[in-house]
Write a protein that binds this DNA or RNA. Structure first.
Length: 886
DNA sequence: CAGGTCACG
DNA sequence: ACGTACGTGACCTGA
């Protein structure tokens, strides 16, 4: 018989470990909302293990129910355990499917645990077999012998530690089988059986080393000197014998499967593909295609899908350009402001044709350009903003966008992916489109496939757009977001496209000059810091800095991170009087940030037109805000003067133009006043009061005549921020640098003084628990799957999010609406002024100096009237020659 | 590629 | 008792 390598896996233990090894429940969810973290982690571990050991035989054993012969003997066996979370349990039924697809046998046995199945089979192995036992539970190490090696997972399930008789002898000084004896004496807290009072691992080991076993210990109990320990041993003999019995893994369970039957079968690639598609495990899918000899089965096209024909065209005839169409501009660009798309496809949904063409070639044709620009020709798109920018960059204009599946998908659930296959599944359609990562690869391996493959992919994607529009509209209607979609998000996409295309002019020379200056300064600061530290080290490395501060200089440790000492700004602030090096480091950090993130990087984003074209992501944030990237122009420094100067490099397009900035004053607190209907807050805003001052006056119980000091206002301001964020005493105490108890009192006083706000906070959390989501004034939704989580931290986080999201999200809705109306007004009045940037609660425009007066009227008017709240919206504005000046 | 840090609202 | 303020993106370090 050929040598067998037999892998025996403790499925129950490893499934559970896998769950806790990736606790990102949000990210690991498939399109149906099923959590997939345990399955994913288990699968990854399985791949590693199969590759490492190349077993010829594999069996995965599972527990069967919670009733076993052990619970018969001791009712509390494994009692007192927390119930497995629902997020884990829902994944259990899928382990068998995964393992079946892998061609791996599974087994479970009434009244026995997985351990016993493994013990029994390991025992049946022949001497020439190599047996590998894999578990997350150290109890199984008792099975180790000459031909059985036990591997226990570490660090989640990512590492394996081998246990052999030799290694156990070395670390514990006993034989593997004696682990049972040791457990008999010490018990096991996780399996919840007792052991002898006051005997822990150390004592148990000592006794077993001397007496070999529990049985022998009691035979020779007289050899023990009288002691409390001896008394306990004598008194609790029954317990010791029972615990020993519970600890022993059976090697004679009535297992009805033979080792030979665990021979591995071929992977069932089709089943695995189905499984991975269902779970959205794209990386596994991709790996599968790269295994030699395997070809990915085509995604099945369901019978009830319309048949489309693919037509590749060079010369585009007018009859190929329908009244209504789905338009796909395919690109692999990280940043669509540079580079060239790899393809173009559009549909004729009536004729069931997908036309595929070369993007650049098509844009050189007048008929096609006219069709793109014709706003009466409706186009369903995916990421219309990118499409618009790309068409524009290649000499065309895109009008008539009637639908954007990315935006719809995002509104339906902010967690949704941008992959068409996922959207099809969400719409209960067959997911006949391949994932882009699979067709194109990802990272360094990304490449354009051969034409036939590319065209087929473009065809299915374009078809998907045709099919998705109707169901997505239906779903938007069903959740009352069609209005948000049509009145805000879709028109906003066009406004953002214009803003991105216009870009903002930047004087690179100013930045470069300043960059060199700061580089010199940094070098000097480094030397000073080395001097004070007494050695050279990398100041940018929190790890090295931690060693210097908290070991070498022995400064008090204020806070720890997962990996070591925290050296964050808040910590350094507390240490500033403890050592002169601290101030230098704070200074260094500030300058280094400016230098690396802004001064050295921004010039690289200046394109040939002398302008920076950021991208605004409209389908990313969980609250409805925009985000900006490559570069992020929403976090250009302003709070500190030194950083704020960077804004001097942002200049208007023409010498006689100016910037115009307008921002909402306290928009989030105004929204809160409106949503909560707190009478005091409403009154304060209606009376035009300074909200932080009013808050201070109420919280500190100041009579009319008394003045609110700066410090009172500062503290009240922090509380107001905290309220908007979903306050916690700890957070406030950190922010104000006050004891947690004081912060707690602060919050209680606040809620007593603003009972409407307190009521809102309670009600919104209750509502979130009831319906599973919260919404903004404009019906934008954020689902909060964790709102009922059993884990305190996870649940608390969701609760704060429930309080904050309607506020932040409503503010986002309002400014979005303002942007659309403003763009309309600018167009209508034929102004040359234009919107350049949005920074959450402010808009930055540029225009001819002579239009500034008009803007001073128009912009605040449009912004203030964007929403009709029960408090006025107030907009502050300014104009200037650079961004610094507004 | 994750974690720490820090820039913005 | 738990260990956090809400929402982002970019840079650096060091596995």
């Amino acid at each position: 018989m050929a040598k067998r390598t037999i892998l025996l896996v403790d499925g129950s233990s490893l499934a559970f470990r896998s769950f806790y090894s990736i606790l990102d429940l949000e990210r690991f969810k498939n399109a149906n909302g099923l959590h997939t973290n345990a399955l994913f982690s288990f699968n990854r571990m399985l791949d590693n293990v199969l590759a490492q050991f190349e077993p010829t035989h594999v069996l995965v054993a599972f527990d069967k129910g919670s009733k076993t012969f052990r619970t018969d003997k001791y009712a509390d066996y494994k009692g007192g355990r927390d119930k497995a979370p629902g997020e884990f349990k829902e994944q259990m039924p899928y382990f068998p499917i995964l393992l079946d697809a892998y061609g791996i046998r599974q087994y479970s046995l009434e009244n026995y645990e997985a351990d016993d199945i493994i013990g029994t089979l390991a025992h049946q192995a022949e001497t020439e077999d190599e047996v590998i036992v894999l578990s997350g539970d150290k109890d199984l190490t008792q099975l180790a012998d000459e031909h059985v090696t036990v591997y226990i997972t570490r660090k989640g399930v990512s590492e394996l530690e081998a246990y052999t008789p030799a290694s156990i002898q070395e670390t514990m000084g006993i034989q593997p089988r004696q682990i049972i004896e040791m457990k008999g004496l010490m018990g096991d807290s996780s399996d919840n059986y007792p052991g002898v009072t006051r005997i822990g691992e150390k004592t148990a080991l000592k006794l077993i080393r001397s007496y070999d076993s529990v049985a022998e210990l009691y035979e020779r109990i007289d050899e023990l000197k009288p002691s409390k320990m001896k008394e306990n041993l004598v008194n609790e003999k029954d317990i010791a014998l029972m615990s020993r019995d519970l600890a022993e893994i059976r090697q004679d369970a009535p297992v009805e499967i033979s080792l030979e039957e665990t021979k591995r079968e071929e992977k069932d690639v089709e089943a695995l593909v189905d499984f991975y598609r269902e779970m959205n495990f794209n990386s596994f899918l991709e790996n599968l295609t790269q295994e030699p000899g395997l070809s990915l089965p085509a995604v099945e096209e369901s019978a009830d899908l319309p048949e489309y024909t693919l037509q590749s065209v060079d010369i585009i005839e007018t009859e190929m350009l329908p009244e209504k169409s789905s338009l796909l501009i395919e690109h692999l660009l990280e940043n669509y402001h540079e580079g060239t798309p790899i393809g173009l496809a559009w549909t004729d949904p009536q004729a069931h044709v997908v036309y595929v063409a070369d993007f650049e070639g098509a844009l050189q044709q007048d008929d096609f350009r006219a069709w793109l620009a014709d706003e009466t020709k409706a186009k369903v798109t995916k990421d219309s903003k990118a499409a618009e920018v790309l068409v524009h960059r290649f000499g065309g204009e895109l009008n008539g966008v009637s639908f954007d599946v990315d935006i719809a998908s995002y509104l339906l659930d902010t967690h949704n992916s941008d992959q068409l296959a996922d959207m099809l599944k969400d719409a209960s359609l067959p997911a006949f489109v391949q994932y882009d990562d699979i067709v194109y690869g990802k990272g360094a391996k990304q490449a354009v496939p051969e034409t036939e493959v590319l065209h087929e992919h473009l065809k299915t994607k374009a078809m998907a757009l045709d099919l998705l529009e109707a169901p997505q509209i239906e779903r938007l209607k069903a959740v009352e977001m069609e209005d948000l979609y049509r009145s805000i998000e879709l028109p906003l996409s066009d406004v953002l496209a214009q803003m991105e295309m216009i870009g903002i002019k930047v004087d690179g020379a100013i930045l470069q000059e300043r960059n060199e200056l700061l580089l010199e300064r940094l070098a000097e600061m480094e030397e000073e810091i080395y001097e004070l530290a007494g050695e050279r080290f990398n100041i940018n490395s929190p790890k090295q800095l931690g060693v210097i501060l908290f070991e070498k200089l022995d400064l008090p440790v204020i806070k720890k991170t997962k990996t070591g000492y925290s050296t964050a700004a808040g910590v350094l602030e507390k240490l500033v009087n403890a050592h002169p090096i601290i101030a230098k480091i704070m200074d260094y950090r500030q300058v280094a940030k400016l230098q690396s993130t802004y001064l050295s990087s921004l010039p690289e984003y200046i394109q040939a037109d002398g302008r920076i074209h950021t991208r605004f992501d409209q389908t990313l944030t969980q609250t409805g805000r925009l985000s900006s990237s490559d570069p992020n122009l929403q976090n250009i420094p302003t709070r500190l003067e030194e950083g704020r100067k960077i804004r001097q490099a942002f200049i208007p397009t023409e010498p006689d133009w100016q910037f115009f900035g307008a921002d909402y004053s306290q928009i989030e607190l105004r929204v809160l006043a409106h949503i909560s209907q707190d009478e005091h807050m409403l009154q304060a805003f209606r009376d035009g009061e300074d909200i932080h001052e009013t808050t201070a006056r109420r919280v500190f119980n100041l009579p009319e005549a008394e003045v609110v000091t700066k410090d009172m206002r500062r503290q009240a301001k922090a509380v107001n921020f905290g309220i908007v964020y979903g306050i916690s005493d700890y957070g406030l105490s950190q922010n104000l640098n006050i004891p947690r108890k004081d912060a707690k009192e602060f919050i209680e006083t606040y809620f007593a003084k603003f009972p409407g706000v307190a009521k809102y906070m309670e009600e919104i959390v209750a509502l979130a628990k009831e319906q599973g989501y919260v919404s903004t004034l404009f019906q934008r939704r954020r689902y909060l799957p964790d709102i009922k989580a059993s884990n305190f931290n996870v649940r608390s986080f969701a609760e704060r999010t429930a309080m904050n999201s309607p506020i932040q999200g409503t503010a986002a809705d309002i400014i979005k609406l303002a942007m659309i109306r403003l763009q309309e007004a600018l167009d209508e009045q034929d102004l040359r002024s234009r919107i350049l940037l949005q920074v959450h609660d402010e808009l930055i425009l540029e225009g001819p100096a002579e239009e500034m007066e008009i803007l001073s009227e128009l912009v605040p008017k449009v912004m203030e009237s964007a929403a009709d709240l029960d408090v006025p919206l107030l907009v502050e504005y300014d104009q200037g020659n650079t961004w610094y000046d507004i």
